[in-house]
Structures are given as C-alpha cells and as structure tokens.
Design a protein around this nucleic acid. Structure first.
Lengths: 244, 244
DNA sequence: TAAGTTAATTTGTCAAACAAATAGAAAAAT
DNA sequence: ATTTTTCTATTTGTTTGACAAATTAACTTA
C-alpha cells in the first residue's frame, strides 16, 4: 500500500510564520495600523522563540507590510505599502527581469512604443495645463548642461508627465515598468551631447503635438524617438563588438 | 556656528546591512550562485552579532535575493529571483494598489481594455497553433461545471494564452498586472451560471476572431466582454447599496 | 500649572549553546 | 574493487537569557 505522507514542512519556522501573518494581512484579517502582540507574546502564541518571531517580522518589514517602533506605545504595526513603495517594487522587479536576460532590445523597444503610444492617445485628449507645464520644464532642463544622470532623470520625468496626463491611475502605475525601469536602460547609451540634441528635438515635437492635441503628429514624434534610440543602441552594440 | 551633524543613522543595523548587500547584488558585485561568507564571518566582517546578520539575510530572502542551505556545502547563496517569482511580485504589488483604494472600476476597466486590445493587435498577427490550443482548452474547461475558483483560474489562463501570443516577453510580463491581478477582481462578481454563459460566449467569439486573424472582430469581442463585466460590476454595487 | 525627572515597556542587539541537515570521508560489506 | 553504510565535520536553524536603547507615561518639583 502506498503511503500518503503529510506535505512535509521543511520550510523554516520563521518563513511559515511570516507567510501566516502575510496572508492574514492581505486577507484583511489584520487591519492597517493595528498593533500586533509584542514579540514575546507572538513567540508564546506560535510556540517559538523571540528571534524566530523577529526573523518572520523582518521578512514582512522587507515587504513594507509591518513597521516596528520601540517604547511602551511601540510595537509592531500593520502597514499597507504606500503608492510610492509599490512603484519601487514594480521598478525593481522589472529591472531584475532585464538582468535575468529575459528581454532583448527589440522586445523592449516594441513594448515601449506600443504602451507609450497607448498612453499618448489618452493623453492628447485629457492633458491639462499642469502636464504640459511639467513636460516643458523637463524639456528646458534637458537643454541645460546637466550631468548624464540628471539628463536621464529629466527624461524620465518628461515621459512620466505624459503618462500622468492619461488621468488613469492604473495606467500610471502600470507604466512604471516602461518609464522608470526600461526607459533608463534604453538611453543609457545615448548620452553624448550630439545625441542629446536629437532626443530633445523629438521631445519638443512630442510636446508640441500633445499641446495641440494632434495625435498623428504625436505618434510620429514618439515613433521617431524610439526608433532613434534603438538605432543608437544597435550602433553601440556593434562598436562594442568591433572592439571585443 | 551651525553644527553639521553626521547623517544620523537611526535605521537598524540589520536594515543597513541588508541594503548594503542588496546593492552589491543588484550592481552585480555579488554574482549569481556566489556563496556569501558564513554567518559568523559576516558577523565579524560587519562587527555585529550573528542574529543581526540573520535578520539582514532574512530580509533579502524575503525578496528572493538569497537562499540558504544547511550543511558543509551549504551556506547563503546569491540568487536572482526567477521569472515566476518576479511575476508574483508584480501581481501582489498590483493587488495591494487595489486594496489601497487607488483604482476605481472605470480606471481598471479602461486600462484593461486598452492594454489587452494592444496585445490583441500583436496576437492576431503572431498567434501560433499552441496559443489557439491553449485558449480552446481553457474555454472548454469554462463550459464544465467547475467551482468558481477554477472558472476564474481558467479565465485567467485563457487571457494569459492570448497575451503570450504577442510573442513579446516584455508585454507578457507587464500584463501580469492586468491578467493575473486585476482581471480576477473584475469577474469576482460575475460568477453565477447565467453570467458564465455570457462570458464564455464572448471568449468563443474572441478565440474565433484570433484564429481567423480578424482584428476588428477580435476587438469587438473584447470590448463586448469588458463592457459586460463593467455592467455586472455596477449592478452588483447597486444591489449592495440597496441592501445596505 | 508647567517643566523636568524617573520608571516601565518594547524593540534592538549580543552571547553562547544545541539541534538539524547535509556533504564528504571513512569504514564495512558484498 | 565496488557499493553501501556509518561517521564526522560544517553550516544554518532555533532556543535561552541577558542587556542596551528608545520612547511613553506617570510622577515629582518648582
């Protein structure tokens, strides 16, 4: 007769406890700002030692699901990660996917073009003066003699303003993968002065078209920009290959 | 004279060490599968105790950045999170955004429609027999008298097959937010038998159109599906409001 | 009443030890 | 000689116990 073993629990106690609490938090059984029992009480409750409980809590803290304070009114409190923290999570996950080598430049280029074009469609209809102003500000900054890092940051903020103009928070969140994670990788190569001018030109055309609510012109500017970046990337790759 | 304090480090030692190691991993200074020193050596290196090192490592383990094994050939090893793990991260982050209340149903519906339509465009051109087969299999499953959970899972897998047909790994990854995270929320309400039939009908039309590479018909089917789900959601809300 | 002081509580950190798993070496059996 | 078993050393997992640091609340004092 075949023996049916229990699903043998070889995971560490701390991991199990963390999962346990995690589910309770996500299910809503533990509510935001609610205070957990003290570490000692938790240790007693789960029949483990305090350091084990601490390890479990640290796992949750790494996910921004709990926060601890010292003192009599202190303790460990349930928190929901903030919008900003979740965006960083998204950004990190996408960056890791790139370093995993799952994405090639063509896939990245295509996805960026398609996704940002989608946003463009909504943005030309809904953009407010605020968004145009933000884009103009960043464009101005890109014309100044700033560092590579600052140019790239201004570039990101320019496209972020465009995405924000869609007035759709789901898209705004989703586009973190493209704007904050993938885009910086794309123009890491295109940072020399000559290339900056070309990029700035494309940005200017994009802004003009969005200001005038001319979708075809805007799409043309975006396509031009993305195509240019892909070309530059290819050139950089070939140069690198020629050297190596 | 104004005193310039050191940037006072009030963060816990474990957190600082975790950040330290985390950056080293993401920068590539620590390479995949590389073994970290033993916990004792790390403790000595950072001049802290072993439990403190352990807390730091657990924070990293929670992000799937390290993994530990016991034994002589054991230790703590650098790992890159897998594709699957990163997708779960994306899914969880999106789900948390919903519970944060940042997204309303109209924004979700609009984003889903636009994003999935984008995928549809590519899928119609590139879909392979494999994808059509997967969609057909899931559609068949949706016609069987399965549980709500299983129907929803089949629904997710149906749309996942569609997204996979885009042959673009960046989009496939990005769409986790829509397919695995948002979509289940949308049809949590539409689970009665009558409503299943309508959904299955839309799916059938969608599959037929993709099979025949007819984009307009496919878009129409998708729009019909999403509109129907939004209506159902509104109805459920009104019913709930009438009760309360 | 208001300010400063003290005490209590809770997390943060440390130290030392044992348990459990595991790989490799050594020993035993075939 | 080869295979299997046993043993041992190493490393993480867990426990116990203690003290440090931060912070609140009560208490004291002016």
């Amino acid at each position: 007769m075949a023996i049916k073993y229990d699903t043998l629990v070889t995971q560490s106690l701390a991991k199990q406890i963390a999962e346990n609490l995690r589910e309770a938090i996500l299910d809503g059984r533990l509510k935001v700002d609610q205070r957990l029992p003290t570490e000692e009480e938790l240790a007693a409750r789960f029949s483990v030692s305090r350091p084990t409980i601490r390890e479990a809590l640290k796992r949750l803290a790494a996910q921004n699901l709990v926060r601890s304070r010292r003192g009599p009114a202190g303790g460990t409190f349930i928190t929901r990660p903030s919008d900003a923290e979740l965006r960083v999570t998204l950004q990190n996950a996408t960056t890791l996917m790139v370093t995993l080598g799952e994405f090639d430049i063509d896939a990245i280029t295509e996805a960026r073009l398609e996704l940002e074009r989608l946003c463009l469609k909504l943005a030309v209809e809904r953009r407010q003066p605020e968004h145009l102003q933000r884009m103009a500000d960043e464009l101005q900054r890109q014309r100044e003699p700033v560092s590579d890092e600052e140019f790239c940051a201004a570039d990101v903020r320019f496209h972020r303003a465009l995405v924000d103009a869609t007035a759709n928070p789901v898209l705004q969140f989703n586009m973190v993968t493209v704007i904050e994670a993938l885009q910086p990788l794309m123009n890491m190569i295109a940072n020399r002065t000559r290339e900056r001018e070309v990029i700035v030109d494309h940005h200017q055309r994009l802004l003009d078209a969005v200001s005038a609510s001319e979708l075809p012109a805007a799409e043309k500017a975006l396509t031009g920009l993305v195509d240019y970046l892909r070309q530059q990337y290819q050139l950089a790759r070939e140069r690198q290959a020629a050297r190596g």
